[in-house]
Design a protein around this nucleic acid. Structure first.
Lengths: 208, 208
DNA sequence: TGGACAAGTTCTCCCTGTGTTCTATATTAT
DNA sequence: ATAATATAGAACACAGGGAGAACTTGTCCA
């Protein structure tokens, strides 16, 4: 099914996913070129075309500033309704934003550990939530959301950094990410540098 | 159908099975070479080719970064096909030997969190394993056994007391139960007073 | 209305990285 | 010794990716 994006296509799609909202208007190809470090519109267009063919980007027929992401047609949750498997997107804090589609791998998750909303699974990397009983190697079930309530544990993408799992506290003018590890300190950011990618709703660990 | 891998082929296959997910993208042959300590792409390619012939690796027809494991067709996982529910025997440390309870309630457990042996689920009561990341209210998957190896976390029934979850250390003449909580001390018993009722193999927690 | 400019599209050319093949040599097993 | 297995290295082929020119289409303005 999924035509398996090439490396560059994945990169470009990730960039679009994460930065498309940064532009006041949808960007022109030239603007995207400079943003992506390309020098040729034509080259970019070729890549975008591939993404359109893959169904990830809305086709823009000669329109100006016409680049939009395609509606994810209820994709992530229930490609197989009644199926209790969720996509495993890889490890968090592994050094990059959560990848879009790349990994077709899924793992079974009991309904009890998830919500009715779209969810996905990540493997935890590191000890930043150890005092909350979330250990290195655990699998966490994340509900896909871009907003969180204070006190929830979220997958947060910090500008120019990794995606991490932290307890969030949003105050006017600043967002604080609290690790649950006595050896680590809370981190404070301007709100627009912190992007919530999901909220923790379940956790699993195997001992064998 | 066992085309009997050579030793090196087995090594390489094991490596792929265990580390393929570590790469952000599927690796190139060159990357695999350095990872495996080889200096020649050609050599590796020959081995990979053998694995492809054996049906263990997806054939990658000239594609870049095309190394994938073949789908393991048969399902060696489910001894009870379709059955992924386990009995929920109630809360541990609730004051009663496990098997006494005949509770018909069951809950779904992903195959990954259990073993092929008979298993059941308990709800954890108390903080005695908090330093191992097992919190009050967690659900634990227990493999039914009456013996344990040292260092395993077991459901232990102590003479005249509750069933508890502890790390076990069996020495000649005494059995020590280690809680994972800095405020609690290990407990030492004569071996015949400690009855192992199962071994921890999985753990689940819900946050919503 | 029509021209100028901006932006999307298509094309051709080119280079690099990477899979593939082959041959030669070392290592190990029978 | 002979065969099977492993490694190195060279040579090759081609897909992926980029540059840039040329063309088309839309937008704006006089």
């Amino acid at each position: 099914m999924s035509p398996t994006l090439t490396r560059r296509q994945q990169e470009i799609y990730d960039y679009l996913r994460d930065h498309l909202d940064d532009f006041p208007h949808p960007p022109t190809l030239d603007e995207l070129c400079t943003a992506l470090g390309l020098k040729s519109r034509g080259s970019l267009h070729k890549q975008i075309q591939a993404l359109i063919d893959a169904g990830l980007v809305e086709p823009m027929n000669n329109q100006r500033r016409g680049i939009r992401l395609a509606e994810q047609s209820a994709a992530p949750t229930s490609p197989h309704p009644g199926e209790d498997e969720l996509p495993l997107y890889g490890a968090i804090a592994a050094g990059r934003p959560i990848e879009a589609i790349s990994n077709p791998e899924t793992i079974p998750v009991p309904p009890m550990l998830r919500t009715d909303k779209p969810c996905y699974v990540l493997e935890v990397n590191g000890d930043s939530m150890i005092d909350e009983g979330i250990l290195d190697g655990d699998l966490v079930v994340i509900e896909q959301r871009d907003q969180a309530r204070n006190g929830e544990i979220v997958v947060a993408l910090v500008e120019g950094s990794d995606a991490t799992l932290k307890r969030i506290e949003q105050q006017p003018g600043k967002t604080i990410l609290h690790p649950a590890n006595s050896t680590m300190s809370p981190m404070v950011f301007p709100p627009d540098q912190v992007q919530v990618q999901g909220v923790l709703v379940g956790q699993m660990r195997r001992y064998h």
